[in-house]
């Protein structure tokens, strides 16, 4: 095995990949939330569609999208590999265990929260990204994503699934954001509080912004 693959398949290397792809996906969410928040202009989707068109057709963005898919895949596959390694490290469990005395439940549930997010990701891309890109490949035309949103979020069950997805994202980020910095070795008394403040703020603002989208459409605040 070369030194490079040896590094990336070691315990710390796998964590390094999780941290780097995690931070990359965190930057993606800023763009995703920012552009989707254009629906709050409440202008019949004009601003949103303008930027959606840019993101869906600009050749630079479309090239970067390949990196985004790779980022998701690496984060998911590496996460599953880590889950396997970590699960194998304790073949016999404790009969009586009190982990809440020493750690938060969401920090111990990153695999579970990640799996919930993966299920949500499949549902979510099946709603918008996959049909839109398929249509682009087939006809060269984009779908009216704004109208699709208005139609889809009339259904309370869909809205509830999206809100549940946002809760999973909130807890996943609440631990994942600061954890990524720790894994990268960024643990320093001068910056720890700053990282944790930004992490907590980010974990609240981004999922809240996302959750408000289906909720606002369901209640007719955005038309």
């Amino acid at each position: 095995m070369s030194w490079f693959s040896q590094t990336l398949t070691s315990s710390i290397g796998k964590k390094l990949l999780m941290a780097l792809t995690g931070l990359f996906l965190i930057t993606f969410l800023v763009i995703h939330a920012g552009i989707n928040a254009m629906i709050f202009y409440n202008d019949g989707g004009e601003t949103f569609t303008h930027w959606g068109h840019f993101m869906g057709t600009n050749p630079i963005i479309r090239t970067l999208e390949i990196g985004l898919v790779a980022g998701f895949l690496i984060h998911i596959i590496d996460g599953l590999l880590l889950w396997k390694t970590n699960n194998d490290a304790r073949p016999v469990n404790y009969a009586v265990n009190n982990p809440s005395a020493n750690s938060t439940w969401y920090s111990r549930s990153m695999g579970l929260l990640g799996t919930l997010l993966l299920i949500f990701l499949v549902i979510h891309t099946a709603h918008f990204w996959i049909p839109n890109r398929s249509n682009q490949f087939a006809t060269g035309e984009e779908l009216n994503l704004y109208q699709m949103m208005l139609d889809l979020f009339k259904n309370i069950w869909v809205v509830l699934i999206y809100v549940a997805g946002c809760f999973s994202l909130y807890w996943h980020l609440l631990h994942g954001f600061a954890s990524a910095f720790q894994t990268l070795g960024w643990n320093h008394v001068k910056y720890n509080r700053f990282v944790s403040l930004i992490g907590v703020t980010y974990s609240i603002v981004i999922p809240l912004l996302f959750a408000l989208m289906p909720i606002s459409i369901y209640f007719g605040w955005v038309q």
């Binding site: 796998k14 194998d88 982990p99 920090s107 111990r108 720790q182």
Partner: peptide, 24 residues
């Protein structure tokens, strides 16, 4: 041994209170 999830359980239970900054 498994990998680290940065839960902080190790440091919280360590009788010598070794800091997580060592893992970083």
């Amino acid at each position: 041994f498994g990998a680290c999830t940065n839960t902080g359980a190790c440091s919280a239970e360590c009788p010598k209170e070794i800091s997580m900054s060592n893992i970083a």
